[in-house]
Design a protein around this nucleic acid. Structure first.
Lengths: 331, 331
DNA sequence: TTGTAAGCGTTATCAC
DNA sequence: GTGATAACGCTTACAA
């Protein structure tokens, strides 16, 4: 069996319907067509089981109804949720999602951009970690969480506000001695604002706090060392920790509990992301919840609306706090 | 700023290099080109920053170097891992991944197929739940875990063997009274063989067992009722459970522990999938591990090799058992 | 090997 | 509105 049989073309439809090629084209492009002809075309189309050839259309119009989505990973629950929502938004608008996974590799990001452009995608949504990104793309480009270039529209949650919120919550819950843990390689991204927001509240309130930041690290061991070196007679000096991701928050919680330090009894922890665990359907820790659906929608809106993308925008969406077992307000 | 500037064409390269259009084309298609001309072309290409227009090429060749991947979800850890590996295999071969998420909806699956074909993708890899799938596609199609049609190549893990392995392990670990829990809507899929394999061992060994199967159910409550109705004086009648997914295994474990029934002390549980939890990097339960990387590779190999896809194959890949905290062999 | 030219299946521009 | 016809940028004979 030959897979590539001869497929009917618009010409075939025109002949079958007894109208001209242009009329069929007009029909498919929503241009005015006389009612009688419309019917004949529709009959011919269903008789021949015709579908417009997207390749030919793409060559003429230079549009493919396809958006490239660059993601560092798809296994990370937050990225998975974001990819899910973005794909959904795109498909609702009749666009396809060309998913490219970069594994946090700037080189892979670069190649992905090139490949995407070569294939005439209509735009790019990228969660990238390369601050030297080619900025002069021939298509609209919107980044997520990476506000490193004023010419590129960026969508993100309110990282600064989220950091503030985390600090305020911990204080409200009775913490006196705060810690901020950050681990990532996202040096120039929006994400680091989480720490700034957190620290701003600590300073304003005159609260004792400490920041421990790990960059490009594969292991969180230094956090654990820090944690243990600040325990006296089984009692930690700190009683509230803000981690810049739920993953880190979870690991820290597991570590502390393993050391006999109660969470949230002795130490309360707040993470960032707010994606429910797939196994339990619940939050994995108390956290700052990102508005994933809204972020996806904003990114898609911007990338598909060339008018907007010509005027670089920065969309910062509000976050909220939710208890999830690592703070004393958890039920 | 206009995004769609005039982009150089092969004609421009030919003129710039002082060779003919055909020569430039030959260069890009790996056809023999005299060394001198090759250099002139390469210089012209880098001078103009030329890239082949994939749309034009697609129209001529009817190939897009793009594969459609149909997934029911991307948030499920197993699907996420599979999508990750498939995307990686595709990109390694220079193919792009057009991800379509169907949310288990047969209607969405149908639309996705149609859209994919219209856009001239070179093949489809699908994890689908629609047993009435159009089988007469104009492109190679390979399914994963859905061996419902003899004409469609299918890749899956050894579900039957995995079920057997689970039963044998539970028996080896001292269980006397087994249970099998299945919840899904995948009526015609490979997945139900997990139960058959499990039961076959129980029967052969003359072990007492019970199967509880929920189809198209949104909640696992019936399992919990079953579990509690078979507890006498705080001691369950069963001591080993095989669940057809890690998710279910986890939920059952959480439920039992919540009822004061020790896992694995009183009841041992084995799941199926074997994807490490993203937060901890560890298995979430004792489980039958699917060879995800190999499954992805097999699916991509088949879909890209039209020779093979013309001769429907069924690839069953071996699984292995791994302890993960819900059996007594867990460290 | 290389140049020339005919399409691939559309859309867009005209007269009519 | 409709019908011819010229592109779109490439691949692929075919001739040289």
């Amino acid at each position: 069996m030959n897979h590539k049989r001869s497929v009917p073309t618009m010409k075939d439809v025109a002949r079958e319907a007894g109208v001209s090629l242009g009329t069929v084209s007009n029909y498919f492009n929503g241009n005015p067509v006389r009612e009688a002809n419309r019917q004949r075309v529709e009959e011919a189309v269903s008789r021949l089981n015709y579908q417009v050839n997207a390749s030919a259309r793409a060559l003429k119009t230079d549009r493919t109804e396809c958006i490239a989505l660059l993601m560092p990973s798809i296994r990370h629950p937050f990225f998975a949720a974001l990819t899910d929502e973005i794909t959904d938004c795109l498909m609702q608008r009749g666009y396809r999602n060309n998913l490219m996974i970069t594994n946090y590799d700037p080189d892979a990001e670069k190649k992905s951009f090139k490949l995407a452009v070569q294939h005439k995608i209509d735009g790019i949504i990228g969660l990238t970690y390369n601050q030297n990104l080619e900025v002069d793309l021939p298509v609209p480009f919107v980044t997520i969480d990476s506000n490193f270039h004023s010419k590129i529209p960026c969508v993100s949650s309110d990282n600064y506000g989220g950091g503030q919120l985390a600090a305020e919550k911990l204080l409200e819950l009775g913490c006196k001695n705060l810690l901020f843990f950050r681990i990532d390689s996202n040096i120039y991204g929006e994400v680091q604002k989480r720490g700034y927001g957190f620290e701003s509240v600590c300073r304003k309130r005159g609260v004792k706090y400490e920041s421990v930041i790990l960059t490009d690290s594969q292991t969180e061991a230094p956090f654990y060392e820090y944690l243990m070196s600040h325990v006296k007679d089984g009692v930690p000096e700190y009683d509230g920790i803000f981690c810049n991701s739920d993953i880190l928050a979870n690991r820290v919680a597991v570590f502390l509990r393993g050391q006999g330090i109660g969470v949230p009894e002795m130490v309360q922890i707040i993470g960032y992301d707010g994606v429910e665990d797939f196994y339990t359907g619940k939050l994995t820790c108390s956290t700052i919840v990102q508005p994933i659906r809204e972020m996806a929608k904003a990114a898609v809106d911007i990338v598909l609306n060339t008018n907007i993308s010509n005027y670089p925008a920065c969309v910062i969406l509000p976050v909220r706090y939710a208890p999830g077992g690592t703070t004393k307000d958890s039920v």
